[in-house]
Amino acid sequence: MGFHSDYEEVVLVFHKVGPLQKVLLALSFFTSVSAMASLSETIFKWKGFILDAVAVYQDYFVAPIIKYSAILGLHYDP
């Protein structure tokens, strides 16, 4: 179901079909590849958003807890 198996299937079938089917096969393969590229771009954007959310969590929630627990004599071990 991955890219490699799709590519192998297209190569196997490509030589067995007519010209119109070759065009449709190439078009469908291109469409599936561009859909994967779009998905990876979306995942990359979400990665940045999640990374920012974790940084905010660390700065505004974890850091004050560590600071005030040190005053009470509790120590945080990373």
Rank of each mutant, 00 (worst) to 15 (best):
F29E: 00
S32A: 13
F44S: 07
M36E: 11
A37M: 11
E9G: 03
E9T: 00
F44P: 03
A37D: 15
D77W: 12
S40V: 11
K16H: 07
Q58G: 06
V54H: 09
K16M: 02
V23R: 06
F29I: 02
K47A: 07
F61H: 08
H4Y: 15
F3L: 09
V13N: 05
F49Y: 09
L12D: 12
S28Q: 12
F30Q: 12
K22G: 01
V23G: 03
D6K: 08
L72N: 06
L25M: 03
K45Y: 07
D77L: 13
L74C: 06
L27Y: 09
L25F: 01
F29C: 04
V13F: 04
L12K: 12
K45Q: 05
I43L: 10
G2C: 13
G2F: 12
E41F: 14
F61I: 06
G2P: 09
K22T: 00
T31G: 14
Q58C: 12
V17P: 01
I71K: 06
E9S: 05
L39C: 15
L39E: 13
L20D: 13
G18V: 03
F44N: 09
Y68F: 10
M1H: 13
Y68M: 05
P64R: 04
G18M: 02
S32L: 11
M1C: 10
A37R: 12
I65H: 11
S28V: 05
S38W: 15
Y76D: 04
A35K: 14
L74M: 14
P19R: 10
F61M: 11
